[in-house]
């Protein structure tokens, strides 16, 4: 189809992020603002809750919606001006981490100039952890990046399938050459144990008492 026509939402839902972005660009270039807006809505809605919940794990409730909007704005902008790197979802994840780190940097600056009491007013601490700081956030991010990065592609894929997709060993065995169920469970067990050890070490370093 040389001239793509506007597509209904359920069809747009089935496109990959990259296909959806290309579709929105095509609709814009054809002057079809309504179709472009529909595509943009599918893209933004599809990622909104996942980004919002990631932000909410680390940022006070009153900041979450605005920071989520800033993150998605930045990612969409990069996708449309060609400055994003790799897949949209990976680039979006990079921006999430950067903006949360920026949040902690800003908060540290604010703490230099404002009283702790005024900052703590109005439920401004994260719902999940009131103690983390920029250093702590970066350390925790480094732990998971290091742990996954130090694995072979095969072992990383096993972890993704069995931990983050919460599937049994059989799909991992089917997808990864030479993997057995016993090996797959061992890979996951080692990953969990090392994650736990690294986080415990970090806690011990942060609180030597």
């Amino acid at each position: 189809m040389a001239s793509p026509e506007p597509l209904p939402e359920h069809v747009l839902d089935g496109l990959t992020d990259e296909e959806l972005i290309a579709y929105i660009a095509a609709m814009r270039s054809r002057g079809n603002a309504e179709a472009a807006a529909t595509g943009l809505g599918v893209l933004v809605f599809g990622h909104w809750e996942n980004v919002r919940r990631r932000v909410a794990l680390r940022v006070p409730p009153v900041e979450v919606e605005d920071l989520t909007g800033e993150i998605i704005t930045s990612a969409v902008r990069s996708a449309f001006d060609g400055t994003s790197e790799g897949e949209f979802i990976v680039w979006l994840g990079t921006i999430v981490k950067r903006r949360i780190a920026d949040f902690y940097r800003l908060r540290e600056r604010r703490l230099d100039t404002a009283s702790l009491d005024s900052i703590a007013e109005g439920g401004r601490e994260p719902a999940t952890d009131g103690e983390i700081d920029l250093g702590g956030y970066l350390e925790v991010q480094a732990v998971i990046v290091d742990l996954l990065g130090s694995r072979s592609d095969a072992h990383r894929r096993v972890i993704e399938i069995m931990v983050f997709d919460d599937l049994p060993a059989s799909p991992a065995v089917a997808e990864v050459d030479g993997m057995t169920a016993a090996n797959a469970y061992q890979v996951v067990t080692r990953f969990r144990a090392e994650l736990r050890r690294r986080l415990a070490e970090r806690d011990a370093d942060a609180d030597p008492a």
């Binding site: 939402e9 359920h10 747009l12 839902d13 992020d17 809505g41 599918v42 893209l43 809605f45 599809g46 990622h47 909104w48 809750e49 996942n50 919940r53 990631r54 794990l57 680390r58 979802i89 994840g93 999430v96 999940t128 952890d129 925790v140 732990v143 998971i144 996954l148 993704e160 931990v163 983050f164 997709d165 994650l195 736990r196 986080l199 970090r202 806690d203």
Partner: peptide, 19 residues
């Protein structure tokens, strides 16, 4: 902290939610 890290990693890989 372990659960936060794991949920965060899951959400980072989660597909788009259906419209």
């Amino acid at each position: 902290e372990e659960l936060i890290v794991l949920i965060d990693a899951y959400l980072a890989r989660a597909p788009r939610r259906a419209f």
